[in-house]
């Protein structure tokens, strides 16, 4: 059998590890060459801006999956946080229209997400219920909770300071995009450089061994669910700003987009494997394709078919990577 040299091996590993980025770059070049008006800064900024919500959801989802669990509740938590944000301070529709400082909605959204996350984590850790079931129940129930508060109606018209978040740009980049990038930078740092991040990988790899090593697996698991919830709360807060309010079905479908992005980004559903640098590439890949379809005016059904194929492709790629690793490295 052909044995690669050390340099070749490192090159192959590098290529395999960053495959999503190469695909993303390839797709962007392809679209830029073939689609009229696709190649412009504005389009790329839009791709980033539209990636904000699924992007932030995907961070929390990745953390939970790396730690060996699942969080299906994020989409509903996001929608609920958006609903609460609008419900507290919006001017039209079903709203309390409180005269409070509108910025208080941000801690409210974060806290709300963290509380749901805590409850998820508590049930998973203390009552030993599978995360799939617990968070599925939360996914269903919390969407309902949001509907209950507003009776299934819309809320609209956020106060000016919040609306400004959507229109502010810093050195040419929308504030939303900067928030997205900061979140990724922060959590990439946490995952790769801190004990907390290291322990998440350990738990996902072998929870028993981690527990035996004296690491407080239960507390870490609850913390990771709280982080996932809080990130969903942040996404919800931003989403309500983006749409200037909240509608009953806001954000529906984003859970599966986040799952697709995470899988495409190379996070293993088995736990313990994955990096946020891959996940953001996965998110941007989906966002670029959506944008291309919008700009081309293709029938939107294409979007779903393409996404489905992408996820399948990602999984195939993953097993291919493993085989290459086994055989040649």
């Amino acid at each position: 059998m052909l044995q690669p040299s050390d340099r070749q091996r490192r090159l192959i590993t590098f290529l395999l590890d960053n495959l999503v980025w190469f695909i993303l770059i390839f797709i962007l070049i392809l679209f830029s060459l073939t689609i009229d008006k696709y190649f412009q800064i504005g389009i790329f900024i839009n791709i980033l801006r539209q990636a904000t919500f699924v992007g932030i959801l995907s961070i929390g989802l990745s953390l939970v999956i790396i730690a060996g669990h699942l969080d299906l509740s994020i989409e509903s938590v996001m929608a609920f946080a958006a609903m609460i944000t609008a419900f507290l301070v919006a001017s039209g529709g079903v709203t309390l229209a409180l005269g409070i400082n509108p910025w208080l909605t941000l801690p409210a959204a974060l806290l709300l997400g963290a509380i749901v996350g805590w409850a998820n984590g508590f049930l998973v850790v203390r009552l030993q219920i599978s995360a799939f079931i617990v968070t599925l129940a939360a996914f269903i129930g919390i969407r309902g909770l949001g509907l209950m508060i507003t009776g299934g109606r819309s809320v609209y018209g956020l106060p000016d300071p919040l609306r400004a978040v959507a229109s502010t740009t810093v050195v040419g980049l929308p504030l939303m995009v900067l928030i997205l990038i900061s979140c990724y930078a922060l959590f990439h740092f946490i995952l790769t450089r801190t004990t907390f991040g290291r322990h998440l990988y350990l738990i996902g790899g072998n929870a028993t061994a981690t527990f035996r090593a004296g690491i407080n697996v239960k507390r870490l698991t609850i913390t990771v669910f709280m982080l996932s919830g809080a990130l969903a709360g942040l996404a919800g807060w931003l989403l309500s700003i983006r749409t200037n309010g909240a509608t009953p079905n806001l954000g529906s479908g984003m859970l599966f987009e986040a799952f697709a992005a995470v899988v495409i980004g190379g996070v293993s559903l088995q736990g313990g494997v994955g990096r946020l640098t891959g996940v953001i590439a996965g998110v941007l890949l989906l966002s670029s394709i959506d944008t291309a379809i919008n700009v081309m005016g293709l029938p939107p059904q294409f979007m779903q078919v393409i996404r489905g194929l992408l996820v399948l492709f990602a999984v195939l790629l993953d097993s291919l990577k493993l085989q290459i690793h086994r055989r040649y490295l």
Binding site: R242, T291, V295
Partner: peptide
């Protein structure tokens, strides 16, 4: 879904 409409508007206003 409202976010999808926002995305569409944004894209189209560019192109």
């Amino acid at each position: 879904e409202a976010t999808n409409a926002a995305d569409i508007a944004e894209q189209q206003l560019l192109v």
